[in-house]
């Protein structure tokens, strides 16, 4: 069963240097949270969809679509209810509050979808190498990429463990909160045991392949900033600045009359 988000393909997004993509992702996150009006986060969400198309990341996005849908709807509804405005719409909801809710929904959805597109078009090793190139020490970058690598492994073990215990009659859905919590013990113990075992195996395999044998190591992945990367990075930097400006100094794209 494949649970990785990365999709092997040769698209302009895949070819971009991971550092340029990381900067672009940062810009996306900042832009999304810069303003409350739904126009910008909504536009970003459309942009992410276009990028998903360019980067052939649909398969990975599809896998999180339920999550995106739930988060989008849930935050739109709750924030519409919690925020206050001036123009009544229906019941306790005002126009401003609804706009705010929609904006918050798009903020979350566009950042999650953007991260998924990033992971779908960037290999773990590229992320690690990119991090190293921007000055993160190798062990830290390696730990980060290994953590990304281990998540699917643990999820896979977790699925098997749930099936094994269900086969023995475990029913975690019924009962009160504490009862249900106690029922998770038969799941947690084997999951942790499996995690410890496979981490131990991994550590041995790393040692056996000479991990840390030389003070400097070679990076087989060759990263090179090409014109497209410079353009992307420059755009990303400009967007970061714009986002900061919008957030800190500008009143553009605010929702007039919104009371939080």
């Amino acid at each position: 069963m494949d649970i990785y988000l990365y999709v092997e393909a040769d698209t302009p997004l895949h070819r971009l240097d991971p550092r340029a993509k990381m900067l672009m992702l940062l810009a996306l996150l900042l832009m999304a949270v810069a303003v409350d009006h739904p126009v910008l986060p909504g536009g970003l969400f459309l942009l992410v969809l276009v990028l998903a198309h360019v980067g052939r990341a649909w398969r990975s996005l599809r896998r999180v679509r339920t999550l995106l849908f739930i988060i989008g709807v849930f935050s739109t509804v709750t924030w519409s209810l919690f925020a206050r405005g001036e123009t009544p719409l229906f019941g306790p909801v005002q126009v401003e509050a609804l706009l705010y809710g929609i904006g918050t929904g798009f903020k979350l959805v566009s950042t999650i979808a953007g991260s998924v597109v990033f992971l779908a078009t960037t290999k773990n090793e590229e992320i690690a190498t990119g991090l190293i190139r921007i000055g993160v020490p190798y062990p830290v970058a390696f730990a980060f990429s290994t953590a990304l690598r281990l998540v699917p492994t643990f999820v896979g073990a977790g699925v098997t463990i749930i099936q094994a215990q269900k086969s023995r009659g475990l029913d975690v859905e019924s009962g009160g909160f504490f009862q249900r919590l106690r029922k998770h013990l038969p799941l947690m113990v084997p999951v942790f045991a499996a995690a410890i075992r496979s981490t131990n195996q991994l550590a041995m395999a790393l040692e056996a392949k000479g991990f840390g044998a030389r003070p400097v190591r070679t990076y087989y992945l060759h990263l090179e900033f090409r014109p497209a990367d410079w353009i992307t990075a420059a755009t990303g930097a400009a967007l970061v600045v714009t986002a900061l400006y919008l957030r800190l100094f500008s009143d553009a794209l605010r929702i007039p009359g919104l009371i939080r």
């Binding site: 290999k123 773990n124 400097v216 070679t218 087989y220």
Partner: peptide, 18 residues
């Protein structure tokens, strides 16, 4: 532990700074 076959094989030699 790598994401593709080629990088998996390259990991050992990388550590020896070849």
């Amino acid at each position: 532990f790598s994401t593709n076959v080629e990088l998996e094989v390259a990991f050992g030699p990388e550590n020896f700074a070849l």
